[in-house]
């Protein structure tokens, strides 16, 4: 085979591998990027600060003063303009917020809040963070989650 043919075969293999991986992992809530580590350093020098003052929610609220936290949990969705699955995610999350009492949905335009995006380690849109009542991150999912996945993740908040 010619070099071009080999490159074409490699491209197809890469696309199938990446696509299959995404298909399997998109929308799945997994762990949480440890923002705590980063904070740990500064937290020791600020012992008087209450835990709530360092929560992820504090960061979100600093960027978006009008956002409303849920008593039980807050679903923080990062979206961008060039993002087709963000729409589906918005629909699922607003539906869940309407359905479950004490849960709110906050959508952050990633492009316009890059500092928050970097601080929270968001790489893709949509990324959904589940915050507990105290505003701490419980888990997160990249890619569009299904309704059952969101409801299951809320069980951990």
């Amino acid at each position: 085979m010619s070099t071009g043919a080999w490159i074409a075969v490699a491209a197809v293999a890469v696309a199938l591998a990446v696509g299959t991986y995404r298909l399997l992992t998109d929308g799945r809530f997994r762990g949480t990027r440890s923002v705590v580590e980063v904070r740990g350093a500064s937290a020791t020098s600020l012992e008087t600060t209450s835990p709530d003052d360092q929560s992820v929610w504090t960061d979100v609220q600093a960027a978006m003063p009008d956002a409303v936290a849920g008593e039980q949990a807050t679903l923080v969705q990062f979206s961008s303009a060039f993002c087709a699955p963000c729409r589906a995610t918005r629909r699922v999350l607003t539906e869940v917020a309407d359905l479950v009492p004490g849960v709110t949905h906050v959508e952050v335009d990633a492009e316009h809040h890059l500092e928050l995006v970097r601080r929270l380690g968001v790489l893709r849109t949509p990324t959904t963070l589940v915050l507990d009542g105290a505003g701490n991150e419980v888990t997160r999912a990249t890619g569009a989650p299904r309704k059952e996945q969101v409801l299951a993740a809320l069980g951990r908040a």
Partner: peptide
């Protein structure tokens, strides 16, 4: 080609993700 295949087979938009990065 990789980007086009991801779009065609998985409806996944590679360029859109590169945008945020």
């Amino acid at each position: 080609l990789v980007a086009a295949l991801l779009n065609a087979v998985f409806r996944f938009c590679l360029g859109c993700e590169m945008y945020l990065l």
